[in-house]
Design a protein around this nucleic acid. Structure first.
Lengths: 219, 219
DNA sequence: TCCACTAACATACAGTCTGTATGGAACAGG
DNA sequence: CCTGTTCCATACAGACTGTATGTTAGTGGA
C-alpha cells in the first residue's frame, strides 16, 4: 500500500548514480558524435558500467536518448524561465515584451551545442514526429503558447491562431540559434539574427493607427 | 581524351535503369520508414537488384541518401520555379511580391511527404550540418537569397542581412509546411499558417511613412 | 538468524546490418 | 582473339543491438 519514502536507504544513492552516469555519458556522446555513431558500448564505457546496467534502466537505446533529450529540454526551459522571471522583477512589462525578451534570451542561451544537436537535429529523426513533438510540447511549447495567448488577451498581439504561431516562432528562433552557433563571427551573427527576428515579430503586433490590411492587402 | 557521348550505346540504358530503380526504391522507403529503419536489403529488393549493384553505384548508404535528397530538393525547386514563372507571366510583379507568392506556393507544394521526411527531417541528422547545408544551399537557398537581394535592391524590403534572413525564412516556411501536413484539418491549417506567415513578413517590408523604429524601438 | 525474493547489475549469445572482397559475365578495343 | 574495364552477384568479416541467463547484494518476514 504505502509507497516507501526512501527507496533503499543507502543503496538507492548508488542506483541513482548509475542512472545519472549513463545519462551524462550518453548526453556527451550523442551531442558530439550523434545518435547513430554512438554505440551502447561507448556509452557504458564512458559511464564505467556495463551494457547490462543500460538495458536495466532503459528499455532500449532510443529510450535512453529520449531521457537525455527530455533532460536537455527541461534544463533549457528552466534556464529561460529563471532568466525571465529575474528580469521581470527589476523591469516588469507586459506579456508581449516578456516574449520578445525571452526570444532574445533564447538566442543567447543557445550557445549550448548539446541542446542544439540533441533536441533540434537528432531528436526529430531518432524519435519521430509524434514522440519528439510530445516532448517539446511538454517542455517548450506550453510556455510559448501561454505567453502568446496572454499577449493576445492583453491586446498587444493580434488575434492570430496560437497553434501554428507557436510552432513557427519556435522554428524561427531554433534556426536562428543554429545560425548563430555555426557562424564564424558569433557576435555579428547574434546581432544580425536578433535584428531579423525583431523585425519579423513586428508583423504580429498591433500597431495603433496602422491597419495590417494596409500592408498585407493585395491589389 | 574525348568523353564518349553515349556510354554504351544500348547497355547504358540498362545501367541508368538500375541506378534509377535504386533511387526510386530508396526514396520511397527512406520517406516511409526513415533512413535508419531502412536496410540496404529492403532497398535492393524493392529495386529488384542485389546489394552489389547498390555498392557499385553508390559509395555507401549515406551516399545513396545524399543522391535521393538532392533529387527531392531539385524537383521541389524546379516545381516552384515553374510555378512562379508561369504566374509571373500572367501577373507580373516586383521581387518582393514574387517572394511572398513563392512562399505560399511552397506551403501548397509541401503536400509532398517525401520531401518533408527526407529533406527536412532525416537530412540534417543523416548528413550532418555541413553536407546538408551544402545541398540546400545549392538547390534552395540560392533562389531565396537572390530574390531577397533583388527585393532589397528594389526597395521593397529593408536592408537586412540576407544570410540569416534566408535561413530563418526557410526554416519558417519549412515548419509551416510540416505543421500543415501533420494537422488533422489540412485546409484550415493551410489558411492559418498562410496567415501567420503573411503577418510575419510584414515586418520586413518598408512601409512608407511608418518608421520601423517606431514599432521596434524600446523605451 | 535464516530463508525466500527481488532489484541491480554482469556476461554470453543470437540475429541483423553494413561494407568489402571476390568472382563472373558482357562488351570494347587493339 | 585476347585483354581490360564496366557492371553486377555472392560470400564473408566485423560491428552493433537486444535478449536470455547468471550472480550478487539487500530486504522483509517468520
Amino acid at each position: 500500500m504505502s509507497v516507501p519514502r526512501i527507496r533503499r536507504s543507502r543503496s538507492a544513492e548508488h542506483v541513482a548514480d548509475t542512472r545519472r552516469a549513463l545519462l551524462r555519458a550518453a548526453r556527451e556522446l550523442f551531442a558530439e558524435r550523434g545518435y547513430a555513431a554512438t554505440g551502447t558500448e561507448d556509452i557504458v564505457a564512458a559511464a564505467a558500467v556495463t551494457r547490462g546496467a543500460l538495458y536495466h534502466h532503459f528499455k532500449d537505446k532510443a529510450d535512453l536518448f529520449r531521457a537525455v533529450m527530455a533532460e536537455c529540454a527541461q534544463e533549457m526551459a528552466e534556464r529561460l524561465v529563471a532568466q525571465e522571471t529575474a528580469r521581470a522583477e527589476t523591469n516588469p512589462g507586459d506579456a508581449w515584451q516578456l516574449l520578445r525578451s525571452g526570444f532574445q534570451s533564447f538566442l543567447d542561451a543557445c550557445n549550448d551545442a548539446q541542446f542544439q544537436r540533441i533536441v533540434l537535429i537528432e531528436g526529430p529523426a531518432v524519435l519521430g514526429h509524434s514522440a519528439w513533438d510530445a516532448l517539446v510540447e511538454e517542455h517548450g511549447y506550453v510556455l510559448l503558447a501561454e505567453a502568446l495567448t496572454e499577449a493576445i488577451r492583453e491586446g498587444n498581439v493580434d488575434d492570430l491562431p496560437v497553434g501554428p504561431l507557436t510552432r513557427m516562432l519556435a522554428a524561427l528562433i531554433s534556426e536562428a540559434s543554429l545560425y548563430i552557433a555555426r557562424a564564424e563571427d558569433h557576435v555579428r551573427a547574434r546581432e544580425e539574427a536578433g535584428l531579423v527576428l525583431e523585425r519579423l515579430l513586428i508583423g504580429l503586433g498591433r500597431v495603433p493607427g496602422v491597419s495590417p490590411a494596409l500592408v498585407t492587402g493585395q491589389s
